[in-house]
Design a protein around this nucleic acid. Structure first.
Lengths: 339, 339
DNA sequence: TTGTACGCGTTATCAT
DNA sequence: ATGATAACGCGTACAA
């Protein structure tokens, strides 16, 4: 007999029942807050639980309840996770807060490889979670497909890929782009252009749409410079091209802060002063926005709100409520010195 | 009878058995790769599984196996999660990679409130995961206590709080601080100070210790400026104070890159040129380091390595191997233009 | 108010 | 190679 034994066997309802001198049923009732437990039984059970260190076994509970009280938070862009996308942390925290208030556990699942994809798909279909919040799903995402096929209560942050009918929550890209462009116009700029990134994504095309909305009949397609990515270098190159084509430009809406930062570098290189010669506005209010000189006027995404609402959407479905299939969240304009 | 029914009932082994015309035992054997399954049975089972869309139920499996093949990644500093600490993303990814290779699922649990603490503690003690990786545990952390009491296989990233005997992996803060300070001294600086952040944490005090190591008898306590946090503003304020006290300072070791960036702003405001008048070095090689002007010389933490090793420590315990209780990881010095 | 007994979906042991 | 059957630990009708 080894005295320095390994991990202690976990106490079960049975152990508690023996010590407390009542039946297992009563223990279970006590644990689940059933009112039909006598005061004497209650006392005995409490003492017994403390004595044996009982904690209900999750797996057994899940098996019989057919629920886990937990929902997955699936993120599919790990490499950009904490660097490129400044909002994901907020989304995470917002979702966690909302789930926590509803006494649900959030489990973040990182999809970083083919293996991960399969494992996460199994995780979902195996019933380890009651629902899922999915951020940055790609087109034809296997995880998204599993969710769709199994009708797992889910909510996407951003538009769901494909023709999915899943619930989702997005920011009002178009309205926000319209608003900040209008604000830029109000500063008296006459020739305002846009560096439009990622037009193959909803966010990109919506931001462009908002921009044209704001311009109205002043819109000049020659002042639109499409670039592939929301990146610093794309912004720099886009601005360079734009300056060449329209040297008289005096205002720019960059599709993201990173793009704006790149654009400002190009402007500086071209000898244009910001905001005196050219006003620049961005989108996201990421870390970039505070590091540019001058600080960037931009649009702040309600990241925590996105997370909260996505969680709310899932929880509503879990409760069987008829939840809205789509939520549009407003953004806030943060006006600094760049325009 | 509603045709637009809700979620489909999940198929069970039983369903597959009926369709395939074999017993449940054989199904189970097939699913788990047991070689004792005839070719004919195999075929029938494969077809049946596809037909009914069977996926093993995780809870039932966990219940009987007494294992979940998943480990928790617990992080207790959500607010700094994606902002202050640039390494946590790498740690996360490293851990996920290592676990993924071992076919284990990683579940990130965010502790952001009292409620979360309790729920996570239940999650752990209820057997939802086989082990845990814990980052940034606080002194007297209830989660850490649960892990300790239940002897859950675990590994800490950073020193475990209290007198815990748990396994952990840390970077060599002291050695790295000593190394980069020495490097700074080699550039010919005569009056080198330090903005020492978070001295209440091991990382903070170890970095200071490394600094004094390197200075040797040239050490001047008057050139140490303690600041509470690893933040930009703390760096700015600390540098301002330091300049006031020691205007002849010509070298600074900032306890982190964010601190260094703040310090550089203060230097600029004071009219000191970097690196001509003052050499500056940081710690972390975070995003800050590449955005300062000039780019920052700093210490790169092997973030992914930390995650990988922590995971390896947990996996080893899970396999019942005698794992090392403590791992010290070396850092790399990244020399750029700021010194 | 309490105890009994069944079922949740698997795996594993034992016959066959 | 395969089929029965007993666990795994819990919730909950139902009976008392």
């Amino acid at each position: 007999m080894s005295t320095t034994s390994g991990r202690p066997r976990r106490a079960t309802v049975h152990d508690v029942a023996v010590v407390a001198g009542v039946s297992r049923g009563t223990i279970s009732r006590y644990v689940n807050g059933d009112p039909y437990v006598s005061a004497s039984a209650r006392e005995a059970i409490e003492a017994a639980i403390a004595e044996v260190g009982y904690v209900p076994n999750t797996a057994a509970r899940h098996l019989v309840m057919q629920r886990t009280e937990s929902v997955a938070f699936i993120v599919h862009e790990p490499h950009s996770l904490f660097v490129e996308d400044p909002n994901i942390g907020g989304i995470l925290l917002g979702a966690n807060a909302a789930l926590s208030e509803a006494d649900h556990q959030m489990a973040v699942l990182i999809v970083d490889s083919e293996r991960d994809t399969d494992r996460v798909a199994r995780y979902l279909s195996g019933g380890s979670v009651d629902g899922a919040i999915i951020v940055s799903a790609r087109a034809n995402d296997p995880v998204a497909r599993v969710v769709e096929k199994l009708k797992i209560p889910a909510a996407f942050v951003g538009h769901p890929p494909g023709a999915s009918s899943a619930a989702f929550v997005v920011i009002d890209n178009r309205g926000s782009a319209r608003a900040i462009t209008s604000r830029l116009l109000e500063t008296g700029r006459r020739r305002v252009g846009m560096i439009a990134a990622a037009l193959d994504r909803d966010s990109g095309s919506d931001r462009l749409a908002g921009f044209t909305d704001a311009l109205g009949d002043r819109f000049d397609p020659g002042l639109i410079e499409p670039v592939p990515l929301y990146s610093y270098s794309a912004g720099r190159d886009g601005m360079t091209a734009l300056l060449e084509r329209a040297p008289d430009i005096d205002g720019v809406f960059a599709a993201s802060d990173a793009v704006a930062a790149g654009a400002m570098e190009a402007l500086r290189a071209a000898g244009r002063r910001v905001p005196i010669d050219v006003g620049v506005v961005g989108f996201d209010d990421s870390a970039w926005a505070r590091r540019t000189l001058p600080a960037l006027s931009t649009v702040r995404q309600p990241a925590e709100g996105l997370g909260r609402q996505a969680a709310a959407l899932v929880l509503a479905q879990l409760r069987g409520e008829a939840a809205p299939g789509e939520m549009l969240l407003d953004c806030e304009i943060v006006w600094r010195e760049s325009a």
